[in-house]
Design a protein around this nucleic acid. Structure first.
Length: 490
RNA sequence: CGGGGUGUAGCGCAGCCUGGUUAGCGCGCAUCGUUCGGGACGAUGAAGUCGGCAGUUCGAAUCUGCUCACCCCGACCA
């Protein structure tokens, strides 16, 4: 039996850890900073992979695989890149019984090793665009780690593309950001802000970094995915060049983009409650659990038979088959556990729909249905069960998104002065939309004084002039200001 | 690296201040019986290098020194 989960309000960090550990999504490993992803958690990752991979492929990208180890010299080629990543890298210096002549870095990201190959693969403008994606693990030696959100080793997807023009690269960068946004909102039911990162927050080696930012239940922001326009920064140091139509050799323009197992952390922090994890139907491993009430010995076989029959009917129904994903039903006939125990257990694990089937239901040709995100039970006649379940799965997916979106919107504020901003961040938390003059001095002041950072320049308003009278909330000078989203973050 | 804290059964902890039989409790685990529509109950049982090393003492989980590990807060975080 699991310990009771810490209520969210008391200690969000402890609550989050309880949900992760008790729902058996992940565990601490013997290697500090690395986590073990348990089958429950890995099933989520497999569904993320499946759904996202499909979407990535429709953009024309193809999957490939590059080595785990990167020659140290590769990393050093791009000045900003090495400066940003060197302090976080694990390095292999000894192998085969001797010190290595050239050290190898365990990849923190693969721009360099992939460019070393792109340089060979790209010859002509006819080879472009080159669109490659890789599902793999990476390692970044962070000082402080947290299950799923920041671990030393994590699983991710990284896309790398080459284009003939900066404009085309910019379009690809934005296209992939859209792919991530739609994926996060449709599959994870996690509303996000899209936007541009400030200069100080951008990827080491990029021209521009875009990200999607979502709000957790403690009102802190989580960067859930990034998309970078690399311009020719890596192409120049790896000589990734093509012969253009005009007969001239030119450097390619590149992008890279990624999301990681951090999404699972975001998912947990967005939807879970004090009963445990809540799996959005699109991502759930098991969608329906049937708990048969087997107390009466003479009824046992009949109930189990009926449970199997119901399960089959549901799976074969047109209503269920017409859903855009496959449904899995689990009949828990374990007689060593009591029904009440099972109810709690499946709530902890986040299974979207639970059906109870007992002697009374058999008599009335019905089942008891409980939806994970609602606090009630209904009696459903068996003949309308498939339709009811299909409806619930669809509306639960929608409701989870709406609930998260309402929460986010209710905790997003417009602030016009620095005093107002500080007060809002301190007392309410959440996101603040405000004006900034683009001066790093003002950006730094916000960070140092409030621990909040400029998350993004929201995409919708990114190129919009903001009213003449509204000045940078920090310096209040006449410098032209832009709209920014500011929040404390993970 | 700085500040604080914790190491006792698989998990959570008490005992330590004030040294003294065979180191306890709850959960979990095993067996049997009664239970089973919201985390059942009874009986029996298995399970411990008290983080490690050294010291003080007739005697150390308990006192002293050193050391190791982990957790929290800060520094880092494309």
């Amino acid at each position: 039996m699991a310990e009771k989960i810490t209520p969210r309000a008391d200690n969000f960090s402890e609550w989050y850890q309880d949900v992760v550990l008790q729902a058996k999504l992940a565990d601490y490993s013997p290697v500090k900073g690395c986590m073990v992803i348990r089958p429950n958690g890995y099933a989520l990752w497999e569904n993320i992979q499946k759904e996202l991979d499909q979407r990535i492929k429709t953009t024309g990208a193809k999957n490939a695989y590059f080595p785990l180890l990167i020659p140290e010299s590769f990393l050093k080629k791009e000045a900003q890149h090495v400066e940003g990543f060197a302090p976080q890298c694990a390095v292999v210096t000894y192998a085969g019984g001797k010190e290595l002549e050239e050290k190898y870095v365990v990849r923190p990201t693969s721009e360099t090793i992939i460019n070393s190959m792109f340089a060979k693969w790209v010859q002509s403008y006819r080879d472009l665009p080159l669109l490659i994606n890789q599902w793999c693990n990476v390692m970044r030696w962070e000082m402080k780690t947290k299950l799923f959100l920041r671990t030393t080793e994590f699983l991710w997807q990284e896309g790398h593309t080459c284009h003939t023009s900066l404009e085309e690269a910019e379009n690809k960068t934005r296209q992939m950001l859209e792919v991530y946004k739609n994926f996060a909102e449709e599959i994870l039911a996690m509303p996000v802000w899209m936007g541009l990162k400030s200069e100080s927050e951008k990827f080491a080696g990029a021209l521009r970094t875009y990200s999607i930012e979502s709000m957790m239940q403690d009102k802190k922001a989580l960067q859930a995915g990034t998309s970078h326009n690399l311009a020719s920064n890596f192409a120049k140091v790896f000589d990734t060049m093509f012969l253009d139509q005009d007969g001239k050799q030119k450097h390619v323009y590149q992008t890279s983009w990624g999301v990681s197992t951090r999404l699972i952390g975001g998912l947990i922090m967005t939807h879970s409650d004090d009963k445990g994890f809540v799996a959005p139907p699109r991502l759930a491993e098991t969608h329906v659990v049937i708990v048969p009430i087997l107390a009466q010995a003479q009824m046992k076989d009949k109930i189990l038979e009926k449970a199997t029959e119901i399960s089959k009917t549901i799976l074969e129904s047109n209503e269920i088959k017409s859903l855009p994903y496959n449904i899995k039903i689990n009949i828990d006939a374990d007689e060593t556990k009591q029904p009440g125990w099972k109810f709690h257990e499946y709530e902890l694990l986040g299974v979207p729909i639970r059906l109870e089937l007992g002697p009374k239901d058999l008599e009335k040709n019905q089942v008891v249905l409980a939806r994970r995100d609602l606090d009630k039970k209904e009696f459903i006649p068996i003949d309308i069960l498939p339709q009811t379940i299909a409806n619930h799965l669809v509306s639960m997916q929608k409701d989870l998104f709406e609930k998260a979106k309402n929460f986010r919107d209710q905790n997003t504020f417009q602030t016009y002065s620095y005093t107002e901003f500080k007060q809002t961040i301190e007392t309410k938390g959440g996101f603040c939309l405000t004006a900034w003059c683009k001066d790093p001095v003002c950006e730094n002041k916000i960070k140092e004084e409030t621990k909040a950072t400029i998350r993004v320049l929201p995409l919708d308003s990114m190129f919009q002039e903001i009213p003449e009278k509204e000045k940078c909330m920090v310096c209040q000078t006449k410098k032209p200001a832009i709209r920014v989203l500011v929040a404390r973050s993970y």
